[in-house]
């Protein structure tokens, strides 16, 4: 199994380290040449979604990435990655994300809460979004204080927090198993 990590901007190295811990091969995507390699899954990391959108369009990656996900490429988006998959960006998932939902950096926080199918996990929220609305086919996997912070639709998984920033590898393991399903 080989997982591609979108490395246009943000915390992509942290995802690579998580996959390494799980013994899963990965590679970074910065342009169209990188994208054209064989892959079994895709991770869109945290960072700034406006920066990622700008670069994904300029590098002519927008269409191919969006098409591949719609055609079933298993994809995992964290924080900005969640925003990238929503209905106003790559538009591959029936979710409406609320950006900077917890305010500025002073609103960033850490908590531990339930994730369906895994149990209690650490959750780090950094200027995080949450999901305002879910549409057809979307299953909510976790809520914190009444807000949706993790969801799945087919082979797409999103979290508004950052599993890649903690030692716990269970969410990444969940994604790897999702690919193998």
């Amino acid at each position: 199994m080989k997982i591609a990590i979108l490395a246009l901007q943000g915390a992509f190295a942290e995802h690579q380290q998580m996959l390494q811990k799980l013994g899963v091969e990965s590679f970074l995507i910065r342009n169209l040449d990188d994208w054209n390699q064989e892959k079994d899954g895709l991770i869109i990391p945290g960072g700034e979604s406006t920066a990622m959108m700008r670069i994904i369009k300029d590098e002519e990656l927008f269409e191919p990435v969006s098409q591949a996900i719609k055609n079933g490429l298993p994809t995992f988006g964290t924080c900005a990655g969640l925003i990238m998959l929503d209905d106003t960006h790559l538009n591959t998932m029936n979710i409406e994300a609320k950006r900077n939902a917890y305010g500025r950096q002073l609103g960033s926080f850490y908590t531990e809460d339930e994730f369906e199918g895994i149990g209690t996990i650490p959750m780090t929220f950094i200027r995080a979004p949450y999901i305002n609305k879910v549409g057809e086919g979307v299953k909510v996997l976790s809520t914190v204080d009444g807000h949706i912070v993790a969801a799945r639709q087919g082979k797409q998984l999103v979290t508004s927090f950052h599993p890649e920033l903690n030692e716990d590898t269970r969410v990444h393991d969940y994604f790897v198993k999702m690919i193998a399903e």
Partner: peptide, 17 residues
């Protein structure tokens, strides 16, 4: 986790930018 960790984490999100 303390503020220091959360604040280091924000810098991580700025990487490559």
């Amino acid at each position: 986790e303390d503020r220091t960790t959360l604040n280091r984490n924000l810098a991580q999100m700025l990487k490559g930018g």
